[in-house]
């Protein structure tokens, strides 16, 4: 229905754009991660040089060696994956009953209730993290209230720790968990559940043996939508976290902006991509299927 030349334009333009501005940059990152850091502008020596003697390769694995040798980086990866995993699990525990409840309210209510879940996502991310800063600080609203009520004698340590980072991630990414869960649960055949009930299945059994397995694609999509960006999260650990739990996004940011070590920042990005390659490929596989969709 679309002519050949028009097809070439319709497919070609976005494809070339994405190849140039999304795919090519990763090749550049890989390239620069192999170069040497120097105190210059730009702060690295190209890994390949065209000189009078021909092409000379000056690449080095120094940046990767640095990552392996320094415990800080290894700890940062371990922390990021661990915190992203636990936050994803908490999102699932909070989000699944929410999505299920929205589906159960019936068709008329579903749209507005879902909208209420999505709405916070469209208010500024930074604003939502700031909101938690004002709540969690030692002088914050929650501690003020607890002190005024006499429930605690001194402020609770609610911020600048892992608890606050988990809270921030769960809060910010909860809509991404609820949306795909809702999408799969809504499509589930109600008659299947009724059949299970008619056959004498108790509601919990029906849920565990029918609903839950059938909603697994939504669970996986939601978990990936939370887990992948959470691993590389920068703003939340920077504003809500303490200095004792380095996370990879924050380390990369510091390596780039404070230390101006572009090769080390690039090596960190390459290793992060390597860690996330499996989850990203799985997400692409799920979302690129016809009918499968990650985000709204």
């Amino acid at each position: 229905m679309i002519g050949h030349r028009a097809r070439a334009v319709v497919i070609g333009i976005p494809l070339v754009w994405l190849a140039l501005f999304f795919l090519a940059p990763f090749a550049v990152v890989l390239w620069i991660s192999l170069s040497q850091a120097v105190d210059a502008q730009p702060p690295y020596v190209p890994a390949l040089e065209l000189g009078r003697a021909g092409i000379s390769f000056r690449g080095t694995l120094d940046s990767y060696r640095l990552l392996l040798d320094d415990d800080l980086y290894v700890a940062a990866y371990a922390n990021s994956v661990r915190i992203a995993l636990t936050s994803t699990a908490i999102c699932l525990l909070i989000g699944y009953p929410m999505a299920y409840a929205i589906v159960r309210t019936g068709p008329a209510w579903r749209g507005p209730l879902l909208m209420l879940v999505v709405l916070p996502f469209w208010t500024s991310f930074l604003v939502r993290v700031y909101a938690w800063m004002t709540l969690l600080r030692p002088t914050g609203t929650i501690n003020q209230a607890l002190l005024a009520l006499g429930l605690v004698a001194e402020p609770l340590p609610l911020s600048a720790n892992e608890f606050a980072v988990h809270l921030g991630i769960v809060y910010s990414y909860l809509p991404f968990m609820v949306l795909p869960l809702y999408a799969t649960l809504e499509r589930l055949d109600r008659e299947l559940l009724e059949a299970a009930a008619d056959l004498g299945c108790r509601p919990w059994r029906a849920f565990l043996s029918v609903t839950l397995p059938l909603s697994l694609p939504g669970v996986i999509a939601g978990a990936l939508l939370v887990f992948i960006p959470a691993v590389g999260e920068f703003v939340i650990p920077d504003l809500l976290g303490g200095s004792d739990t380095p996370m990879i996004g924050r380390v990369l940011w510091a390596e780039f902006f404070s230390n101006r070590d572009w090769p080390a920042a690039s090596a960190l990005a390459v290793v992060t991509l390597f860690v996330l390659a499996g989850p990203i490929a799985l997400f692409q596989h799920l979302a690129a299927r016809p009918g499968g969709r990650g985000r709204p």
Partner: peptide
């Protein structure tokens, strides 16, 4: 796949690259 990847890619990686 290329269209969908930017949706989940950690921002520090997209920005740096």
């Amino acid at each position: 796949a290329l269209l969908i990847a930017p949706l989940v890619m950690p921002e520090v990686i997209t920005g740096l690259s």
